[in-house]
């Protein structure tokens, strides 16, 4: 990697304009299912982002509904604290139905 790339530059050639904003794309593949994140794209505004998401991510009927969200509007949990973040849930095994032993007489519950 060249020196200017290391510094995050573009080799002295600054882009002419700032690139279009980044959007995250979520697609509902079928009625009844959740929207699922499938990637991102650049677009000038939400309307254009939806149109582009259709062309980029649903060329083969992969979706019946699309959400686009400005990437900078997403707040995410810290991956460095994943363990501490997930840990408190791990010891509460009584949240799962398998924690409870049922008498044999109870066939279904």
């Amino acid at each position: 990697m060249s020196e200017d790339e290391k510094q995050g530059g573009t080799g002295g050639r600054r882009p002419l304009v700032q690139e279009w904003p980044l959007w995250e794309v979520f697609i509902r593949s079928k009625q009844g299912l959740d929207h699922k994140h499938c990637g991102s794209l650049h677009a000038t505004d939400a309307k254009q982002a939806i149109q582009m998401a259709r062309d980029v991510y649903t060329r083969r009927n992969e979706g019946v509904s699309i959400w686009v969200v400005p990437s900078n509007a997403i707040t995410a949990s810290d991956p460095g604290e994943r363990e501490a973040f997930v840990d408190p849930m791990a010891d509460k095994i009584f949240r799962h139905p398998t924690f409870y032993e049922l008498p044999d007489e109870v066939k279904h519950m």
């Binding site: 790339e5 995050g8 530059g9 573009t10 080799g11 050639r13 882009p15 700032q18 690139e19 650049h42």
Partner: peptide, 12 residues
């Protein structure tokens, strides 16, 4: 890396 940076690397 930004899209613009990648484009610039290709075009140069």
């Amino acid at each position: 890396q930004s899209r613009d940076e990648m484009m610039a690397a290709l075009h140069s």
